[in-house]
């Protein structure tokens, strides 16, 4: 197995684990954990293709990862602020209890 195949397999498994966390967790904060895992899987793909793909003087892969990390940080900050606000209103971060919009 060459490094590219190994990293792409790692990225696929990491993405699936993140998706599993998003689908099975009830705590809103732990769903964010799953989202961070999926974002990381995507970043690993970019770095793997930059490092083991054809030479790229424009550094597209690392550049994309830099912006992706910045946006992931922003997303986590806003997501957690929203979760904390919801917690102040309902005293819970359990998504099963947040059903006031349920018809």
């Amino acid at each position: 197995m060459n490094p590219l195949a190994l990293l792409l397999t790692l990225s696929s498994l990491l993405f699936s684990l993140g998706l599993l966390a998003v689908l099975t967790r009830r705590n809103a904060i732990l769903i964010l954990v799953g989202i961070e895992l999926m974002l990381n899987a995507a970043n690993i793909n970019f770095i793997a293709f930059w490092r083991y793909g054809p030479p790229d003087p424009e550094l597209t892969g690392p550049m994309f990862v830099l912006f992706s990390i910045a946006i992931a940080a922003a997303e986590a900050a806003v997501g957690l602020a929203i979760i904390l606000m919801v917690f102040r209103h309902t005293r819970s971060t359990d998504l099963n209890r947040l059903d006031s919009l349920h018809g």
């Binding site: 990381n40 990390i69 992931a72 940080a73 900050a77 957690l80 904390l84 005293r91 819970s92």
Partner: peptide, 19 residues
């Protein structure tokens, strides 16, 4: 990620009541 996002998540868990 380790210095900001993960620590932010840990602090949110400390602030909110654990399920």
């Amino acid at each position: 990620y380790v210095g900001a996002v993960a620590i932010l998540i840990v602090f949110s868990l400390l602030i909110t009541r654990p399920g």
